[in-house]
Design a protein around this nucleic acid. Structure first.
Lengths: 230, 230
DNA sequence: GTCTATAGACGGATAGAC
DNA sequence: GTCTATCCGTCTATAGAC
């Protein structure tokens, strides 16, 4: 299991929180509550627009506790970002060289869509950071994520060379899969307004989107027969 | 020509600024400078993260002038948003019923990509507003934009019915075109980090992206022959 | 119409009681 | 470990001189 940020925060104060202690349990529970609340508030207001008071209210804790556990708002934000990076990296398992292209791509898309549906706030915090120019996660983007893309696009290129799928721009294909899936979390407000959903997107919307994305990707890769015309 | 927001701001103070006057010209030039600066600052810092001082500095004007021309930061922000909405709507001309599907879709994609390349800040201001839940533009999304999508997806459906293109989920196809093109403005920081571009995306990156998007859309619509395998 | 100087509100952070 | 009260910097907005 990857070392999550929660673990890191816990470790920093290991002297105060021995596993199993009443204090340790309270500490852990409060840190989790604060980070969950912070993710929600940061997603809807951005870093600068979020106030520690709003996060405290969302977590049902007094404002001073935020500073007691995390020191500064900046440190809390970085803790939330780190957790999201861990979540992202854990979703990157798929795409092995010997897998079946169509099944692997479909499964990868399904996994990304489930993440958009289950953790939309995490996606929005991340998206916001990137729009701002990714000041705090640039090193992650240009190392781990860059390496992952190069590794996986090489696999796609190999599949193409072996005639197992049609010729495509493999990196751009990966980028397209990411944004088509993440947009259902990031831009939910836009899609639900256009689709006329008064109470946000429904599970059916995610199913239809998943199918549309899989269709687009498989047709792009020539992994399904040319669709019939009327 | 559509009534731009700049026009609206001008009209509000028509008593002070008769066309042709020295005052009128200064006023117009200053409003344009402020709005251009504001778009840049809002794009990189969000509404809350942007200060009127930063906008004034970017526009090379004293801070008080911002308030003199726009009253409040909120009003300036709405003026910038309105201008972007005008820009978006003007990019929505294409897609007529009697056009050629492949040519029309390609041209539409090219136009959207040019907009991403030419006005990335505008795109980012808009994206930021949507991530926040689109509080200020919800009415625009659920009326004009919704109507546009319904009109254009009906045309796509007609093309499908007439056997001029393969069966696709027409609304999702439009959404996919939007995000695949806009992401090159909104998430530029991510893509340039992954592609290893130290100084941001290059014109070639936009060309490659344009080609990849056109390929994806045309293959999805069955408008190009199934690509050859090795 | 322009700009300096400042009022006034807000929010991050902390001291210190419990 | 918890929470109230408060400090102090920052930012929006405006008054008033030019």
């Amino acid at each position: 299991m990857p070392k999550t940020n929660l673990c890191r925060v816990m470790e920093e104060s290991v002297d105060q929180a021995v596993e199993g202690n009443a204090q340790g349990r309270i500490r852990k529970a409060n840190i989790e509550r604060i980070m969950k609340a912070a993710e929600k508030v940061f997603a809807s207001s951005g870093f600068r627009g979020s106030t520690t008071a709003a996060i405290a209210a969302e977590a049902n804790l007094p404002k001073a506790n935020i500073h007691y556990y995390f020191g500064t708002k900046e440190k809390l934000y970085r803790a939330v970002l780190d957790d999201i990076v861990d979540l992202w990296l854990s979703s990157f398992k798929g795409l092995g060289e010997n897998d079946d292209p169509a099944a692997t791509l479909s499964e990868y898309i399904r996994g990304k869509m489930e993440l958009s549906q289950r953790r939309p706030e995490a996606s929005r915090v991340f998206a916001n950071e990137i729009i701002r120019g990714a000041p705090r996660i640039n090193s992650y983007l240009s190392t781990e994520l860059k390496d992952w893309v190069e590794e996986k696009s090489a696999i796609l290129d190999k599949w193409i060379e072996q005639g197992r799928m049609a010729s495509v721009d493999s990196k751009r294909l990966i980028f397209h899969i990411w944004i088509m899936t993440q947009t259902w979390a990031d831009f939910e407000a836009q899609w639900s307004a256009i689709l006329g959903r008064k109470n946000g997107l429904e599970p059916l919307d995610f199913d239809m989107a998943t199918n549309a994305i899989i269709t687009t990707v498989l047709r792009t890769c020539g992994l399904v027969p040319l669709p019939p015309r009327h």
